[in-house]
């Protein structure tokens, strides 16, 4: 039993192993982890077949093979994972060494489930934070603090 390269703390056989072998990933996060493990193990077929059809032709297999081979994969951290029905967002950071330099890859990736299989759709590298939303509270609306009073009679005084 070897521990899974994706840093989940589980064994490879209980984690990314079955997914690399072709089983559907139970969650988008599990698929993301297995795609990382595919790079570590130079099993790029898995990366390629888990691309959404519309981006499949954009995959530079030659470069991916080279990156997989030349990099020393150090760790994967899942920073955030959220699923809603058949779509999901997984934000992650990968630490690796290439050409003698420590590198980080930070990406917010979007996934879609098709026929029970999660697929990688797109990614934003070095994503910007979600825009901050400011909600204006009307003076006569209930106070957002939950007191039950009007805003103007409570926190908005």
């Amino acid at each position: 039993m070897s521990s899974c390269p994706c840093c989940s703390g589980r064994s490879f056989e209980d984690c990314c192993g079955p997914i690399l072998a072709g089983e559907p990933a139970p969650t988008a996060e599990a698929l993301m982890r297995s795609r990382y493990t595919a790079f570590v193990r130079h099993e790029l077929d898995h990366v390629e077949r888990t691309h959404a059809p519309e981006i499949r032709d954009d995959f530079n297999r030659g470069e991916a093979e080279r990156v997989a081979e030349e990099s020393e994969w150090q760790r994967l951290d899942i920073l955030r994972a959220a699923e809603e029905g058949d779509s999901a967002v997984v934000e992650f950071q990968i630490q690796f060494r290439k050409d003698g330099k420590d590198m980080r890859h930070h990406e917010r990736a979007s996934f879609r489930r098709e026929d029970g299989r999660w697929l990688y759709v797109s990614g934003e590298v070095n994503p910007k934070g979600e825009p901050r939303r400011v909600v204006k509270v009307g003076r006569n609306e209930p106070c957002p603090c939950g007191s039950g009073k009007k805003y103007k009679a409570c926190c908005g005084k």
């Binding site: 530079n60 297999r61 030659g62 470069e63 093979e65 080279r66 081979e69 030349e70």
Partner: peptide, 12 residues
Amino acid sequence: GWAKEMEALARR
């Protein structure tokens, strides 16, 4: 690096 990339592409 590019030699490896071209070899991988040529195998497709």
